[in-house]
Every structure is written in C-alpha cells, then in structure tokens.
Design a protein around this nucleic acid. Structure first.
Ligand SMILES: [Mn+2]
Ligand SMILES: [Mn+2]
Ligand SMILES: [Mn+2]
Ligand SMILES: [Mn+2]
Lengths: 218, 218
DNA sequence: ATTAAACTTTTGACTAATCAAAAAGAATCT
DNA sequence: AGATTCTTTTTGATTAGTCAAAAGTTTAAT
C-alpha cells in the first residue's frame, strides 16, 4: 500500500508530463507540491529505490512504467470523485478539486467502480480533464488554447486547466462553463488581453488566463 | 486539524463508553486500536496535553467535553458515510464499515451535510447505530439483547453490535437483517445456544453471538 | 578559464506515531 | 506484611516525511 504522500508525488509527476517524455526537475515538483527542494530530492530517492521513477541526479526524474500505472490510477480516482461530487452531491465545480485531493487516497476500487457505473462511465471530469480507464488509457481530444483564438472565432469551452477555486468561481460567474458557446469579440496582443462574448456578457481576459482555457471549434 | 490517528483514538474512547461515565483503561483502548499499551499511554498523554481527555495515571482515561464533541463528529461522519455507501452506491452492509473507517477522516462538513440531505436526515446507520446530529445529540432507543429473549418471543432486529464483515455476511445470509421479524423457537442455557426462526429458516446462535444482536418488541 | 547564478543534493535536526523490553505501580493472594 | 500477578508507564529505538542551511553541480556569463 502506498502512502498518500507517495501517491501525491506520483500523480504530480504524471500531471507535469502525461506523456512521459521529458524529465521533471526536482525544483518543479517541489514547487508543485509546495515542499522544499530537499524534501523532493529525498522523496525522489525513495521512489527510485522502489522502482517507481528513474532518477538522473542533477538532471531530472521520470516515472517508470510501474510508477505511471499507479499515478494514472490516482488520477482516475481523483477525477471520478470530482464528477461524482458535482453530479450526485451537487457540489460546486470550484470546490471539488480540494475535496478530491484527499478522497483520491482513500476511496477503494469498489467505490470507484460503483461511482463510475452510476455516472455512466464518463469520459471527462467537471473541468474537462480526461478520466483514465481502468487499463490506464486516456481519451484524447484535439483542443486549442483560447489564447490562440482570433477575433471572430466562435468556439465552445472544453477544458479549464486551472483548478484554483477562485479562478473557477470567476469562470462560472461569467458563463465560462464547459460546453458554453463563446465568441472572441476582440483581441489585443499589445495589451495582452482578449474579450470574449459569453451568455450575453462581455468578459475581458488576460492572455495568460485565456491560456488556461481550452476550446474546440466543433 | 486533527490527525486520523487522533480521531481514531477519540472515536474509540467514545465508543467504549458513549455516556462518559467510566474511565477507560489504557489496555482496553490499546486492544481496540490494535496498538501496544505503550503506544496508547503515549498517545493518551498527547491527548491530555491537548485537553481532549483527562488522564488519571494507572487508573484510566476519560474524554473531556471538548474531546467528546470531536469524537461524536467523527462518529457522525462514519455513520452517514456508511449509510450513503449502502443506499446510494448499493454497497454491502458487511463492507461499508471498513470503508468508512478511512473516509471518516477526510470527508468535509459540506460533503456530510449533502449526504445527510440526500438521505433525508436519517436517524440510524446500516447496522442500527444512531447517527449523532450536528449538535452532538444521539437518538435513544430502548433495545433488548437477543440473548436475553425467551423461547416464544417475537421481536424485530434493530441493531447489530458487531461490525465484523464475516459476522455481518453470516447474518445477511440467514435473514437477520435490520427490521426482520424473528421468533425465538428454542433456547438452551446449558448448551449456551438459542434457535431463531427468520425468513422461513431456522438459525442456531451461540448466546455470545446473540448478545451482539439487539431487538425491539414493538 | 574564471566567476557567477541557479539549481540540486546532502546534512543534521525535528515531529508524529509506533514497538520491544525494562521498570514501576496496583491489586490480589497467602 | 510479603510475594505474586497483572497492568501501566517509561525508556530507547525506528520509520516516514519534512525543513533550514551548508555543500556540491551544472550552466551561463564574462
Ligand atoms: Mn492528494
Ligand atoms: Mn478536475
Ligand atoms: Mn478511522
Ligand atoms: Mn455502522
């Protein structure tokens, strides 16, 4: 059995690079998990010892196949729990990430399986993130960053890549929900901002914020 | 924030004496939590330091008002989660105790409140144990131990005071479910056993086992 | 080729929780 | 009262995870 701490490290390594291509720097994961670099180094050594990561000292760390499998399962639990909290318990999408952060470590396979059944084997979580299947595969969608859209583009929101509660609350308050049809009414690269028309309202977004929203033209 | 370990100690102290009358022996809680007596002593000192228990060395330990309040909330979370798992996710009553043992430490007040709403503010958990309200009160029922019933008594099952999965599975297989109407068809104090007629079947129980089942005549 | 900057690793210390075994206390029996 | 038994507490050690600060590497800049 893995500790919550180990699961968090594995999950974070996965999220920092779903494809397992690049090596993750010690400092990067330390920052993500809000621990000191020394703590991260120490845990990375533990994980390497257990065969869950490969560590090239001073260069970076990468999940092994075994580590990735475990990480994907944590992600699956996290996202199914999130969707369950929204759909069955009616919780706000801006709050479920925090809750799932804890629950992902204690919900059993049977609970997850039953939630999955009840939800009808969903493919995406409340933020548009793909839910891995039991065998570890992730559905792929061709998405585009909203920050890359041009004036006049009409698109629909497919994913919010920022789990921060305040950001999600803001998005919700301005009609930027999953599936919402929006139009880019203005874009100013000098001012680093764009204007979106959603639900009859105009919303101004900095390009950095727009970069955390993904859309599809479909 | 309390650690899971502290919550487990507090909850166990509460369960060993809901009324807060008697002092609990160090060895008793050590046995319940499956730790060594030394570990229990050490944790008791920590809890006393924090004002959650009163400790009379060599005699025993008792929850303070503050400790009891916290313990009751853990119990509330545990029992609501159990019922939710049975009613909403359709899990077997023999398995939910183990699950709740973990979940009780991570489900937020909001989750519990929403589960409670969805369940219609239930008064008892799947094993017939009372669910404390938010203000810490517990519904009382006048129950009788099945082991005290006489031949010919016709009663209904109101509580199973043994969370062991095998015991619950056995009870279920023999129609000894909550609310089940049963009759005592025989009783032999010498042989330390009694026979129960339930759902068309005869079940023989040792008096010790019968002592973990509570009934009402109503 | 040095030096500086940025990052990573190591070291030493700390906390929470645990155990095994020794020591101490309380209760019981003779 | 004295000895025996049972229980509790203390002691010393261990493990997981963390931090602050020192030391070491890598890379980039001069
Ligand atoms: Mn987590
Ligand atoms: Mn999510
Ligand atoms: Mn527990
Ligand atoms: Mn129960």
């Amino acid at each position: 059995m893995l500790s919550s701490t180990v699961e968090n490290y594995l999950k974070e390594l996965f999220l920092l690079d779903q494809y397992g291509n690049k090596e993750i720097a010690t400092g990067e994961i330390a920052k993500s998990l809000d621990v000191t670099p020394g703590s991260a180094t120490s845990m990375i050594k533990t994980l390497a010892q257990a065969g869950l990561v490969e560590h090239r000292p001073h260069y970076g760390v990468k999940l092994t196949k075994q580590g990735r499998t475990l990480a994907v399962h944590v992600v699956r639990r996290h996202r199914i729990v999130e969707l369950f909290l929204v759909k069955v318990l009616g919780m706000d999408w801006s709050k479920v990430h925090e809750e799932a952060e804890q629950l992902e470590h204690v919900v059993s396979d049977e609970i997850i399986s039953r939630m999955d059944d009840l939800l009808g084997h969903p493919s995406h979580d409340p933020h548009g993130d793909p839910i891995p299947t039991t065998d570890g595969t992730l559905p792929e969608r061709p998405l585009q960053l909203l920050s890359f859209c041009d004036r006049g583009d009409s698109v629909s929101i497919a994913r919010i890549g920022n789990q921060n509660a305040n950001f999600l609350q803001f998005a919700q308050d301005n009609g930027l929900l999953l599936g919402a049809r929006i139009e880019v009414t203005n874009r100013n690269d000098i001012a680093d901002s764009m204007t979106i028309h959603a639900k009859g309202k105009d919303v101004v977004l900095g390009l950095a914020a727009a970069g955390r929203i993904e859309v599809e033209y479909a």
